[in-house]
Design a protein around this nucleic acid. Structure first.
Length: 484
RNA sequence: GGUCCCAUCGUCUAGUGGCCUAGGACAUCACCCUCUCAAGGUGGAGGCACGGGUUCGAAUCCCGUUGGGACUGCCA
């Protein structure tokens, strides 16, 4: 049987799950899923104990599950492989690829002077130091020749070897660093494609050197992986998305009520596009058409506006039942296993009426872009008193005698109108006509009195669903507030 | 500073030498629909960074300029 590509997503759990990471994970996953025998591996790169936190690991796993990026192997922990990393370092040292160095950072800078070549100057390369308490292990990079990274997205990228300094492979504490740990694991996992962010491109030649050296000292000639460096995701300032300054936490998009299929679809569009003029396409199409070779070379801006639009499209494409279920974490969080963080539902469990929500759901489904917008739109159904938009109230009612008069008549008329939307609609038209108001004008004060707002779901359906008693109560209350 | 990457509407992109009078999507504007708000429909405005080549022909190839970015850690 033909072995498919083996890819890995190797995040370090040093913060919230970054949307850029989510895209890297997705592109890796797509490659694995589009070929028979493809294998998608999650490897948590947690070797820097100082910066890792267990909750971030959970965040990665939860977010990937949410996005539907299922694993074939893992999750593995890089920290479980430290013995192999050390063994790799030992072998490389024995093979003459590594040497001990006791230079401090200051030493290196001090010696630099007018030297144009950045980084370490190779000072200790010929000193033949032995292991001590302050000795790091460095890789002796070739002084001549070039290393060419055959990048699937960018083509061949050449690095003159003399521009690559003797980088540190293991700290003086003995801890093996990223470059070697990553390569050792990739080699052991038989990774065939390394797909990651463009910020790793300068690491590639170093890792290729390490890979070849490892092959030489182990006698196990593992084929070099193909590399693919994804364009960066940038902010409005065209800078790499920053964990500190930019809204990059994938979790927060879920909390806001973006749905996974929409989020994945949008992510796929960042640096890639499906054939034809249709951008909203099913995952199966994306899997089918995705090619690393087609990924764009230039950085992409994460545009929340476009994401929102797409999310709205996905929401509207749902059946009513699906939409109702999808709303649950935002409207009835007590009933769900997952619920958004930092989001308060304006009503209590006792106030909520699931049957009523099911009736109004179709009305809001076509009016929201995210599920997080739903509660505010339907709060007036479940709260004893509708939330108040004071400015709207002042404008439409308090300072408008005609509107108050209309409300007064409405109270009487609605007391005897058959309680259904179409009759209420008709009644309001007649009410307005009697006072020289078109429906647009006539509905406003009623809407404001009953829903507390000037915008919302269709009014007459809302009245019907709310019920005569509540509507009449609110009409009276509004009148009272005008005179009070 | 050094190494490397990148360059089509405001944004994401299609475009791989003639199909380009440069297509689509988001955003934006106008109009239509309409009980509000949305959604939807129709239409508009808006782009190949610049300069040289190569070619009968260049958004597409080459060189340069300019501009942006990443990396430059005993982090990943």
């Amino acid at each position: 049987m033909l072995a498919g590509p083996r890819v890995r997503f190797a995040p370090s759990p040093t913060g919230f799950f970054h949307v850029g990471s989510a895209r890297s994970a997705l592109f890796n996953w797509l490659l694995a899923r589009q070929s028979p025998g493809g294998c998608f591996i999650l490897r948590i790169e947690d070797t820097d104990a100082d910066r890792n936190r267990e909750e971030w690991v959970d965040g990665i796993i939860t977010a990937m599950a949410w996005l539907g990026l299922d694993l074939d192997e893992g999750p593995f922990r890089q920290s479980d492989n430290v013995a192999q990393h050390s063994a790799a370092a030992d072998a490389l040292l024995a093979g003459g690829y590594l040497y001990y160095c006791d230079c401090t950072g200051e030493d290196v800078v001090a010696r630099k002077g007018d030297n144009k070549t950045p980084g370490y100057d190779g000072y200790c390369r010929e000193r033949h130091l032995v292991k001590g308490t302050n000795t790091a292990l460095r890789f002796a990079t070739p002084r001549e020749g070039v290393t060419v990274v055959r990048d699937l997205i960018r083509g061949d990228v050449e690095f003159a070897n003399r521009t690559i300094d003797d980088f540190v492979v293991a700290k003086s504490s003995g801890a093996v660093l990223y470059a070697l740990a990553n390569v050792t694991d990739d080699r052991n996992d038989r990774i065939t494609h390394v797909i990651r962010g463009e910020e790793h491109l300068p690491n590639a030649p170093k890792q290729m050197m390490l890979w070849s050296a490892l092959n030489a000292v182990s006698g196990d000639d593992v084929p070099l992986p193909r590399y693919a460096h994804l364009p960066l995701l940038v902010n409005e300032q065209r800078k790499k998305l920053s964990k500190r300054k930019d809204p990059v936490a994938t979790e927060s998009y879920r909390d806001q009520g973006y749905v996974a299929p929409a989020f994945v679809n949008y992510l796929a569009l960042l640096g890639w596009s499906p054939r034809g003029d249709q951008e909203i396409v099913p995952l199966t199409t994306i899997i089918e058409q995705f090619r690393l070779e087609d990924v764009s070379h230039s950085p992409a801006f994460f545009d929340v506006k476009k994401l929102s639009h797409m999310n709205g499209e996905y929401l509207r494409a749902m059946s009513t039942e699906e939409f109702i279920d999808a709303c649950a974490p935002w409207v009835a969080p007590w009933s769900t296993s997952w619920r958004p963080t930092d989001r308060e539902v304006p009503w209590s469990e006792a106030d909520f009426d699931a049957a009523l929500f099911a009736r109004v759901a179709p009305l809001v489904q076509e009016r929201v872009a995210t599920l997080g917008e739903v509660p505010a739109m339907v709060a007036f159904f479940f709260l004893e008193e509708a939330p108040r938009d004071e400015a709207a109230f002042d404008k439409t009612l308090r300072n408008d005698p005609l509107a108050q008069a209309l409300l007064g008549v409405a109270v009487e008329r609605f007391a005897e109108t058959p309680w259904e939307a179409s009759a209420l609609h008709e009644a309001t038209i007649e009410l307005g006509e009697a006072m020289g108001l078109n429906l647009r004008k006539a509905q406003a004060p009623i809407r404001c009195a009953v829903t507390g707002s000037l915008v919302g779901p269709p009014l007459f359906e809302s009245l019907e669903y709310l019920g005569r008693d509540k509507v009449l109560d609110r009409l009276h209350a509004a009148l009272a507030r005008c005179s009070g």
